[in-house]
Computed example of a mutant assay.
Amino acid sequence: MSKTLLIVEDDARVADFLLRGLRAEGYTPTAVGSAEDALPLLRQGGFELALFDVMLPGQSGMELCQQIRAECLALPVLMLTAMGSVQERVAGLRCGADDYLT
């Protein structure tokens, strides 16, 4: 059985790259371009993992993570971002992400 993943990434090229790579590895990924598009899907459930970009239009990936944690949505969250300073990593983990990958 494949694992269902939600990718929240506003850069279409990056999202496409992740979709193709994850499908090739047997995952069933879905991609959306904003936190606002992701939130209803996350509330519906059915995903086993979420990958959030930090810098999204409107609400950031960190704000999205804080919101789903406040709503007690138990879902592993990985932050995937180019923002790799120690302070940014700490902020990502403090907002509720399970890991922060640069």
Rank of each mutant, 00 (worst) to 15 (best):
L19Q: 11
L19P: 05
L19M: 15
R20K: 15
R20Y: 08
L22K: 12
L22N: 12
L22S: 11
R23A: 11
A24T: 11
A24Q: 12
E25N: 12
E25T: 04
E25C: 10
E25L: 13
E25Y: 01
T28V: 12
T28W: 06
T30I: 03
T30W: 01
A31Q: 07
V32G: 03
G33F: 10
A35V: 04
A35D: 03
A35F: 04
E36M: 11
E36F: 05
E36T: 09
D37T: 02
A38W: 11
L39C: 01
P40K: 00
L41Q: 06
L42M: 03
R43L: 05
R43Y: 02
Q44H: 09
G45C: 03
G46D: 02
G46N: 04
G46P: 07
F47C: 01
F47K: 04
E48M: 13
E48L: 13
E48G: 15
F52Q: 03
V54N: 02
M55W: 12
M55N: 12
M55K: 12
G58V: 14
G58R: 11
Q59W: 09
M62S: 05
M62E: 10
E63S: 09
E63H: 03
L64T: 07
L64R: 07
C65I: 06
Q66E: 15
Q67L: 10
Q67R: 10
I68M: 07
R69P: 08
R69V: 07
